[in-house]
């Protein structure tokens, strides 16, 4: 997990995009997270992406669940945002990167936000910490007043 300001986080994402852009088997897709219906569409989109990446049923379930947590976070705490799905390849292993951005108030205390049981809205307060456990790589970039970006990657386990 890294903690940087808005500016730094934008750079990280762009570099990553370029780096993986060359060998991405499928085009990245972007989905709005503005309404409750969007939460369902996001799940469908992520499920489809895990299928095309050849993830096992358990990895599919992990990634879709994490996406659901993160999208709901963005919808409830961030006042809505977007979710981008990118296909990755590393050493011949397929991966998926979810990038969830919102323009909400940001998270002022990230350590607390990762603590199980911490919540400022609906849900069990397992959202951020739980999603992190389901993914292989997890980064949060947030600053009070400047929104939150979560970048989470999962690699196919076989």
């Amino acid at each position: 997990m890294t903690r940087t300001g808005e500016l730094a986080s934008t750079t990280t994402v762009r570099e990553a995009d370029q780096h993986h852009g060359a060998d991405s088997p499928a085009a990245p897709s972007r989905h709005p997270v503005r309404t409750e219906e969007d939460l369902l569409s996001v799940r469908h989109a992520v499920r489809a992406a895990t299928l095309s990446a050849g993830f096992s049923i358990i990895d599919q379930t992990r990634v879709v669940t994490a996406a659901s947590e993160l999208a709901r976070n963005a919808y409830i705490h961030g006042g809505g945002g977007t979710l981008a799905i990118d296909h990755l390849t590393r050493h011949g292993t397929a991966g998926l990167r979810l990038t969830i951005r919102d323009d909400g108030p940001g998270i002022s205390d990230l350590d607390r936000a990762f603590t199980d049981g911490f919540t400022t809205g609906a849900g069990l307060g397992h959202g951020l910490g739980g999603a992190r456990r389901l993914m292989d790589e997890f980064e949060v970039h947030s600053e009070p007043g400047a929104g939150t970006t979560v970048i989470a990657v999962r690699w196919a386990s076989r």
């Binding site: 049923i57 379930t61 199980d116 456990r133």
Partner: peptide, 13 residues
């Protein structure tokens, strides 16, 4: 379902 049970446990629930 088994994958759901595994995920739920990993989620910490």
């Amino acid at each position: 379902r088994p994958p759901v049970a595994i995920t739920l446990v990993e989620l910490g629930l």
